[in-house]
């Protein structure tokens, strides 16, 4: 009996078949679609046309005359940068505040981590109910006399952008807090004590000891924050639908609107490739800079 598994192993080739199936599936569902999209982006394909023809880079040159793309691009960058910044600063501060073994703080941590298990749709509905014209913020503020007139939260380009940032940052601050919390627990207490003995105040201790030790956590939070913000879709679908006046279209949202809503398959594919290049560039640059910082320590 002892020799049989050996034979079977040879016949089956061990793990290789499973690995090849997985690699095949991965190629089919990840690699192929990207190449197929790149090909589509060179055609004038539309859902309401039976035929498509090769148009070279026309879809890419068309981007320069697309009246909506400029604002879409700007909005995507604003949200990506602001959300990454706010959620990292907030996450570090929040994690430092909650980094305590007492029971009270345990409960606070449990509460503070909740947003990161909620879906974007749930998060967006919660905030939409507050930002509406008669939503909870306006109605309570008017009721208690904090405001004379309702605030147009979702109505202007600036306010709607602000509201999107608040909503996204809220969820990602919770995530960053979790990650920074783990980072803080890896800071050796001796280092802190040594700094204290050297007479360093709390601010100096933070910048000289804590912050450098958090470098790996920062890399994680920043890179994931950037990629997450660039992919942003569900929160926009619920909170603003890209409005008002198409001022809160993220690039990811616009790709779907063009390719699926308007049926402009070719141009939508080209916008998708633009999104891919942007994401690749941003995450490569951020990873490089942050990893360098980690190794410099």
């Amino acid at each position: 009996m002892a020799s049989r598994p050996r034979k079977r192993r040879k016949a089956l080739g061990g793990l290789a078949p499973i690995a090849f199936i997985s690699l095949g599936l991965y190629t089919l569902w990840v690699i192929y679609p990207v190449f197929a999209s790149a090909t589509l982006s060179l055609t004038d394909a539309r859902t309401n046309r039976q035929t498509m023809s090769f148009v070279g880079l026309e879809n890419y040159t068309r981007m320069f005359s697309d009246p909506r793309l400029g604002r879409t691009f700007a909005f995507t960058l604003i949200v990506t940068i602001l959300v990454t910044l706010v959620s990292n600063v907030g996450g570090v501060l929040f994690a430092m505040m909650l980094n305590n073994q007492a029971k009270n703080y345990k409960v606070m941590r449990t509460l503070a981590f909740i947003p990161q298990v909620l879906s974007g749709v749930v998060v967006a509905f919660m905030w939409r109910m507050m930002f509406n014209q008669n939503g909870l913020i306006n109605s309570s503020a008017l009721k208690y006399g904090w405001l004379d007139a309702p605030i147009n939260w979702l109505g202007t380009r600036e306010m709607a952008t602000f509201c999107v940032c608040v909503t996204v940052a809220w969820a990602s601050t919770a995530f960053c807090t979790v990650v920074y919390m783990a980072g803080l627990q890896s800071v050796p207490p001796e280092l802190m004590d040594a700094a204290r003995v050297d007479g360093a105040g709390p601010i100096k201790r933070f910048f000289n000891v804590t912050w450098p030790m958090l470098a790996p956590a920062t890399t994680t939070c920043v890179v994931l924050g950037l990629i997450g913000a660039l992919k942003l879709y569900d929160i926009l679908a619920v909170l603003t639908s890209g409005g008002p006046a198409n001022s809160t279209n993220s690039l990811a949202y616009y790709v779907i609107a063009v390719a699926f809503g308007n049926g402009h398959t070719g141009y939508g594919a080209a916008l998708g490739i633009l999104l891919l290049v942007l994401t690749a560039a941003v995450s490569a640059i951020a990873t490089r800079i942050l990893r360098k910082r980690e190794t410099n320590l």
């Binding site: 930002f131 014209q133 008669n134 007139a149 309702p150 605030i151 109505g155």
Partner: peptide
Amino acid sequence: YDPAALSADYSAANQN
């Protein structure tokens, strides 16, 4: 218009 008109959805406007 109301200053927050662009934050009003259809049913809210009807109600107003």
